[in-house]
């Protein structure tokens, strides 16, 4: 049934996301890259194969719009959060000097994320006629 397929697809996506997040997290902890890359490739392949195994419509314009909005809010929340946390870690460098490097990494990450956002924003803005 279509409803079951959609439900299974959603569950599969959640499982794949959790699996990839755990493997990438462990890879970072243990300082190895290969498992993270393998997990991302396997996750993408599983999702792709599952989608291709049916004629059912699993994504359409409404889902694309929902995804756009969710991505946009996630970027804003994440970039502001890491910028603030990074800033606090840098400000508190005299008390927590061990975390200063992490603070700089977070602050620079937020800058890179925002830069990427504006690069792609400019690209799509141009593409769609502005």
């Amino acid at each position: 049934m279509k409803g079951d397929f959609m439900k299974n697809y959603k569950i599969l996506r959640i499982i794949v996301t959790i699996f990839v997040a755990i493997v990438v997290g462990l890879s970072v902890t243990f300082g190895t890259v290969l498992p993270a890359i393998l997990a991302i490739v396997i996750g993408a392949m599983v999702s792709y194969i599952y989608k291709k195994s049916t004629d059912e419509i699993l994504e359409d314009e409404r889902i694309a719009r929902v995804s756009e909005k969710a991505s946009r809010i996630a970027i804003v929340v994440f970039s502001i959060s890491i910028a603030l946390i990074g800033m606090f870690l840098i400000i508190l460098r005299s008390e927590y000097s061990d975390y200063t490097q992490a603070g700089f990494t977070l602050a620079y990450s937020s800058v890179v994320l925002l830069a990427l956002y504006y690069i792609f924003y400019g690209y799509y803005n141009k593409k769609y006629g502005s």
């Binding site: 279509k2 419509i57 699993l58 359409d60 314009e61 409404r62």
Partner: peptide
């Protein structure tokens, strides 16, 4: 939904007036 190549959820959302379709749809 099948005729229009969209998901059933999209038809439900349009009928409930929670989602305005694109001009193409």
């Amino acid at each position: 939904a099948k005729e229009l190549d969209v998901t059933r959820q999209t038809i439900i959302a349009i009928e409930k007036e929670k989602y305005d379709p694109s001009i193409i749809l």
